[in-house]
Amino acid sequence: MTINSPPELRENSSKKDQPLLIVDNIEASYGPFRALFGVSFTLNYGSSTALLGPNGAGKSTVARVISGLIRPSKGHIYFKGDEITGKDTWRIERLGVAHVPEGRGVFASLTVEENLKVFLSNAVPKKLIGEKIDEAYSFFPRLKERSFQKAETLSGGEQRMLALSRALVAPPVLLIADELSLGLAPIVSQEVWSSMDEIRKKGTSILVIEQNIDRAKTFADNVVELSRGKVVESSST
């Protein structure tokens, strides 16, 4: 299968080595619980970074802060040179940030097809939605068999496929994939990783959160390691 790259992504390749996302000294809390203590890192156009760390290190929190689900109490985030700190999530999404959250990440009461429609409704022009849905089905044939089934009746792995398919068929400028391959069978997981490679080649920048450290390190250009809400190591692979 082929993945078309939108014009915007093609021009991204010309900006290689310029920063796309700058996370600058972010602090964030859940009510009284502080989760991040000054996290900084940079992600360049067309590059990929793996965010690693033990459970509870704050990886998902970083992802949530970038996509605007949580407002940081301190620090700044810049995307494509503009500050996006504290912007609404839907605005950030429309700038080209696709955040696939950890867990189910699908609308349980909607059918598979409706989920895809919703995911794609703002990412691609209306005419192309049908085409893109077919593309998603060719990627994950299991989804096609279940297209009129409610998403809540899908297995955990199938729900992950559904959540990921959006990014695969309509590559965003920045993809944030939290627990990318969690719950996927090895073969499917292998496929997902190779498709990640493919959309990266088309120009999507990727921030991936992954428990499988070896897999993440072979995939990503850079590694940022978190522990207890702080960056403990930042290196290129």
Binding site: L69, T89, W90, E93, A98, P101, F107, L110, V118, S121
Partner: peptide, 19 residues
Amino acid sequence: LYMRLVVESPKLAELSGIE
């Protein structure tokens, strides 16, 4: 369609670019 998603998860709806 949007009305149905917003009641289920406004955050997930926002992640899909829906206000």
